[in-house]
Simulated assay, not measured.
Amino acid sequence: MKQLLLALGLACVLLLPACSAETRVSTIRERAEKGDARAEALMGEMYATGAGVKKDYAQAIRWYRQSAAKDYAQAQYNLGVLYERGEGVPKSDAQAAVWYERAAAHGLAAAEYNMGVFCERGRGVRRDAAAASKWYQRAARQGQADAQYNLGALYAQRNNPAEAYFWFGLAAKYGDADAARMRDRAGARLPSGEAAAIERRVRIWRPAIVTG
């Protein structure tokens, strides 16, 4: 099974004219102080990573919470990452799951994937294979390769080589050698005609576009 995604996600892209780093920080801060959720999330990210400002987890948490309270998915996801890492807050899988689920409800693929891992492992939530499959499906349909791999693994465990072949095949398109190996293992259990039909599905497959 592929592991959790624990990188802080880019909060947003604010289109600013060419300017110095100091001016950029000042402009983003001004927007954040006016209640712009995207700017608040970006302020949180800047403080969490030390980009343009001195790293300060207390400030990062403050800005993320303000943005998350406005239902901004990336801020909710990043709060989940900090709770899972125990950075600036007490380490808590339960709290991480709360924030991942809120972000996942908006269709954020990274959060959907992490919820799948939490449900599969029983981290912060009750272990639930059906829920894990649901979250992996949602992330996988957006092109999240690790979710595609884990979904393939679930189908392989359920003795469904056709669906395993499909999802491992999609993950392998991103250059994942493990996915290619597992795809070939699943394919060896299929009649050649069925494998060829699935390969056509893989070739024409396109990720879904989700708007939160």
Rank of each mutant, 00 (worst) to 15 (best):
K70I: 13
K70S: 13
K70A: 14
K70Q: 15
K70F: 11
D71Y: 09
D71R: 08
D71W: 03
Y72S: 11
A73Y: 06
A73I: 02
A73T: 11
A73F: 03
A73V: 06
A75I: 12
A75N: 10
Y77A: 03
Y77C: 05
Y77S: 03
Y77N: 01
Y77P: 03
N78S: 02
N78T: 14
N78D: 15
G80E: 07
V81K: 04
L82G: 01
L82T: 04
L82Y: 02
Y83C: 01
Y83F: 13
E84I: 00
E84A: 10
E84M: 12
R85K: 14
R85N: 07
R85T: 04
R85P: 00
G86K: 05
E87H: 09
E87Y: 00
E87A: 14
E87T: 07
E87C: 09
E87I: 07
G88R: 04
G88P: 06
V89D: 09
V89K: 04
P90C: 05
P90G: 09
K91C: 13
S92M: 12
D93L: 14
D93A: 03
D93N: 12
D93V: 02
A94R: 03
A94L: 07
A94N: 02
A94M: 04
A94T: 15
A94S: 09
Q95T: 06
A96E: 11
A97V: 13
V98H: 02
W99T: 14
W99G: 01
Y100A: 01
E101G: 02
E101W: 00
E101D: 08
E101V: 02
R102C: 00
A103I: 13
A104C: 06
A104S: 09
H106F: 12
H106L: 07
H106G: 04
H106P: 06
G107Y: 09
G107A: 11
L108C: 10
A109P: 11
A109V: 04
A109W: 06
A110M: 08
A110I: 06
A111K: 09
A111E: 08
A111L: 05
A111D: 05
E112Q: 15
E112I: 06
Y113M: 02
Y113Q: 05
Y113H: 07
M115Q: 11
M115Y: 01
G116I: 12
V117N: 08
V117R: 13
V117E: 09
V117T: 11
V117C: 11
C119D: 10
C119A: 15
C119W: 00
C119N: 14
C119Q: 13
